[in-house]
Protein backbone atom coordinates (compact mmCIF):
# COMPACT_ATOMS: atom_id res chain seq x y z
CA UNK A 1 0.00 0.00 0.00
CA UNK A 2 2.71 2.43 1.06
CA UNK A 3 4.90 1.32 -1.80
CA UNK A 4 2.03 1.92 -4.17
CA UNK A 5 1.42 5.42 -2.88
CA UNK A 6 5.12 6.14 -3.05
CA UNK A 7 5.14 4.96 -6.65
CA UNK A 8 2.14 7.20 -7.38
CA UNK A 9 3.99 10.18 -5.91
CA UNK A 10 7.08 9.37 -7.99
CA UNK A 11 4.97 9.10 -11.15
CA UNK A 12 3.31 12.43 -10.38
CA UNK A 13 6.62 14.16 -9.71
CA UNK A 14 8.23 12.81 -12.87
CA UNK A 15 5.27 13.96 -14.94
CA UNK A 16 5.18 17.40 -13.37
CA UNK A 17 8.90 17.80 -13.96
CA UNK A 18 8.52 16.65 -17.57
CA UNK A 19 5.75 19.09 -18.36
CA UNK A 20 6.71 22.15 -16.38
CA UNK A 21 10.50 22.07 -16.47
CA UNK A 22 10.57 24.02 -19.77
CA UNK A 23 8.45 26.74 -18.15
CA UNK A 24 10.78 27.04 -15.18
CA UNK A 25 13.90 27.45 -17.27
CA UNK A 26 12.72 29.08 -20.49
CA UNK A 27 16.22 29.00 -21.95
CA UNK A 28 15.99 25.30 -22.74
CA UNK A 29 15.57 24.67 -26.41
CA UNK A 30 12.83 22.53 -27.89
CA UNK A 31 13.16 18.75 -27.77
CA UNK A 32 15.73 17.19 -30.04
CA UNK A 33 14.39 15.65 -33.24
CA UNK A 34 15.72 12.19 -33.76
CA UNK A 35 14.94 11.83 -37.44
CA UNK A 36 17.12 13.92 -39.69
CA UNK A 37 15.43 15.36 -42.69
CA UNK A 38 15.15 12.89 -45.56
CA UNK A 39 16.92 14.53 -48.52
CA UNK A 40 14.56 12.71 -50.90
CA UNK A 41 11.57 14.50 -49.39
CA UNK A 42 12.87 18.03 -49.90
CA UNK A 43 11.63 19.96 -52.94
CA UNK A 44 15.07 19.47 -54.45
CA UNK A 45 15.03 15.72 -53.84
CA UNK A 46 11.48 15.32 -55.13
CA UNK A 47 12.25 17.19 -58.36
CA UNK A 48 15.53 15.38 -58.97
CA UNK A 49 13.95 11.98 -58.36
CA UNK A 50 11.07 12.92 -60.65
CA UNK A 51 13.61 13.66 -63.39
CA UNK A 52 15.27 10.29 -62.82
CA UNK A 53 11.88 8.59 -62.88
CA UNK A 54 11.07 10.28 -66.17
CA UNK A 55 14.19 8.75 -67.69
CA UNK A 56 13.06 5.33 -66.49
CA UNK A 57 9.52 5.90 -67.75
CA UNK A 58 10.86 6.84 -71.16
CA UNK A 59 13.14 3.85 -71.22
CA UNK A 60 10.26 1.52 -70.35
CA UNK A 61 8.24 3.04 -73.19
CA UNK A 62 5.61 4.62 -71.00
CA UNK A 63 6.18 8.17 -72.21
CA UNK A 64 6.10 9.57 -75.68
CA UNK A 65 9.13 11.68 -76.57
CA UNK A 66 6.95 14.75 -76.74
CA UNK A 67 5.56 14.21 -73.27
CA UNK A 68 9.01 13.37 -72.02
CA UNK A 69 10.40 16.69 -73.22
CA UNK A 70 7.47 18.59 -71.84
CA UNK A 71 7.60 16.96 -68.41
CA UNK A 72 11.38 17.05 -68.39
CA UNK A 73 11.49 20.79 -68.91
CA UNK A 74 8.93 21.32 -66.16
CA UNK A 75 10.69 19.19 -63.59
CA UNK A 76 14.02 20.68 -64.62
CA UNK A 77 12.60 24.12 -63.91
CA UNK A 78 11.28 22.90 -60.56
CA UNK A 79 14.60 21.32 -59.67
CA UNK A 80 16.49 24.49 -60.57
CA UNK A 81 14.09 26.57 -58.54
CA UNK A 82 14.60 24.23 -55.59
CA UNK A 83 18.37 24.38 -56.02
CA UNK A 84 18.29 28.16 -56.11
CA UNK A 85 16.00 28.35 -53.08
CA UNK A 86 18.26 26.02 -51.22
CA UNK A 87 21.33 28.09 -52.03
CA UNK A 88 19.53 31.20 -50.88
CA UNK A 89 18.49 29.42 -47.72
CA UNK A 90 22.05 28.34 -47.18
CA UNK A 91 23.27 31.87 -47.71
CA UNK A 92 20.55 33.16 -45.40
CA UNK A 93 21.44 30.68 -42.76
CA UNK A 94 25.12 31.60 -43.07
CA UNK A 95 24.29 35.22 -42.48
CA UNK A 96 21.97 34.27 -39.66
CA UNK A 97 24.67 32.12 -38.13
CA UNK A 98 27.05 35.04 -38.33
CA UNK A 99 24.59 37.36 -36.67
CA UNK A 100 23.71 34.78 -34.08
CA UNK A 101 27.39 34.21 -33.43
CA UNK A 102 27.90 37.90 -32.87
CA UNK A 103 24.86 38.13 -30.64
CA UNK A 104 25.85 35.11 -28.62
CA UNK A 105 29.21 36.69 -27.83
CA UNK A 106 28.76 38.56 -24.58
CA UNK A 107 29.02 42.26 -25.24
CA UNK A 108 31.66 44.14 -23.31
CA UNK A 109 28.97 45.95 -21.40
CA UNK A 110 27.75 42.66 -19.89
CA UNK A 111 31.01 42.11 -18.09
CA UNK A 112 32.16 44.02 -15.03
CA UNK A 113 34.67 46.68 -15.90
CA UNK A 114 38.29 45.78 -15.57
CA UNK A 115 37.94 42.74 -17.83
CA UNK A 116 40.33 42.32 -20.68
CA UNK A 117 39.20 42.16 -24.27
CA UNK A 118 40.88 40.10 -26.94
CA UNK A 119 40.41 41.41 -30.48
CA UNK A 120 39.77 37.90 -31.80
CA UNK A 121 37.99 36.15 -28.95
CA UNK A 122 36.13 39.02 -27.28
CA UNK A 123 36.05 39.86 -23.56
CA UNK A 124 38.00 37.43 -21.42
CA UNK A 125 36.76 36.12 -18.11
CA UNK A 126 40.18 36.38 -16.43
CA UNK A 127 40.67 39.90 -15.09
CA UNK A 128 44.43 39.80 -14.72
CA UNK A 129 45.63 37.73 -17.69
CA UNK A 130 48.57 38.89 -19.79
CA UNK A 131 47.69 36.73 -22.77
CA UNK A 132 44.36 35.64 -24.21
CA UNK A 133 43.42 32.16 -23.01
CA UNK A 134 41.78 31.58 -26.37
CA UNK A 135 44.43 32.56 -28.92
CA UNK A 136 47.48 33.64 -26.99
CA UNK A 137 47.61 37.23 -28.17
CA UNK A 138 49.05 39.83 -25.78
CA UNK A 139 46.16 41.41 -23.93
CA UNK A 140 47.61 44.09 -21.74
CA UNK A 141 49.25 47.06 -23.37
CA UNK A 142 49.23 50.83 -23.44
CA UNK A 143 46.18 52.65 -24.64
CA UNK A 144 48.21 55.13 -26.63
CA UNK A 145 51.58 55.26 -28.32
CA UNK A 146 54.22 56.41 -25.90
CA UNK A 147 55.93 58.52 -28.57
CA UNK A 148 53.21 60.25 -30.55
CA UNK A 149 50.04 59.67 -28.47
CA UNK A 150 48.05 57.93 -31.22
CA UNK A 151 45.43 55.55 -29.79
CA UNK A 152 46.24 51.87 -30.24
CA UNK A 153 44.10 48.76 -29.94
CA UNK A 154 45.11 45.61 -28.13
CA UNK A 155 47.19 43.24 -30.24
CA UNK A 156 48.71 46.06 -32.24
CA UNK A 157 52.48 45.62 -32.33
CA UNK A 158 53.46 48.94 -33.90
CA UNK A 159 51.91 52.37 -33.70
CA UNK A 160 49.85 53.38 -36.71
CA UNK A 161 50.96 57.02 -36.31
CA UNK A 162 54.75 56.91 -35.90
CA UNK A 163 55.73 53.28 -36.45
CA UNK A 164 57.33 52.80 -33.03
CA UNK A 165 56.83 49.50 -31.23
CA UNK A 166 54.02 49.44 -28.70
CA UNK A 167 55.09 48.70 -25.14
CA UNK A 168 52.99 46.40 -22.99
CA UNK A 169 52.30 47.41 -19.40
CA UNK A 170 50.75 45.72 -16.38
CA UNK A 171 47.53 47.69 -16.13
CA UNK A 172 44.24 46.05 -17.19
CA UNK A 173 42.33 47.73 -19.91
CA UNK A 174 39.28 49.64 -18.90
CA UNK A 175 36.53 48.59 -21.22
Amino acid sequence: MWAEMLAAVVVALVMLWLIFQPLLSPATTAAEWIEPEDPDETPRGIALLALKELDLDRETGKLSDEDYRMLQSRYAAEALQALRNEEEETADSQIEALIAGQRARPSPADLPSGHLVCPTCGPRPEADACFCSGCGVVLVQDKACAFCGTAVVPGQKFCGGCGNAIKTSGAPLPV
Partner: peptide, 21 residues
Protein backbone atom coordinates in the same frame (compact mmCIF):
# COMPACT_ATOMS: atom_id res chain seq x y z
CA UNK B 1 6.54 31.35 -26.32
CA UNK B 2 8.89 28.49 -27.22
CA UNK B 3 8.89 27.18 -23.66
CA UNK B 4 5.14 26.53 -23.93
CA UNK B 5 5.66 24.64 -27.19
CA UNK B 6 8.25 22.56 -25.44
CA UNK B 7 5.90 21.94 -22.52
CA UNK B 8 3.07 20.88 -24.86
CA UNK B 9 5.32 18.35 -26.52
CA UNK B 10 6.57 17.12 -23.16
CA UNK B 11 2.97 16.52 -22.11
CA UNK B 12 2.78 13.83 -24.81
CA UNK B 13 5.69 11.97 -23.27
CA UNK B 14 4.22 12.44 -19.79
CA UNK B 15 0.83 11.04 -20.90
CA UNK B 16 2.59 8.08 -22.45
CA UNK B 17 4.53 7.41 -19.24
CA UNK B 18 1.37 7.61 -17.12
CA UNK B 19 -0.58 5.24 -19.37
CA UNK B 20 2.30 2.77 -19.42
CA UNK B 21 2.22 2.79 -15.63
Amino acid sequence: RPELASSTIRSVYATCAALLV
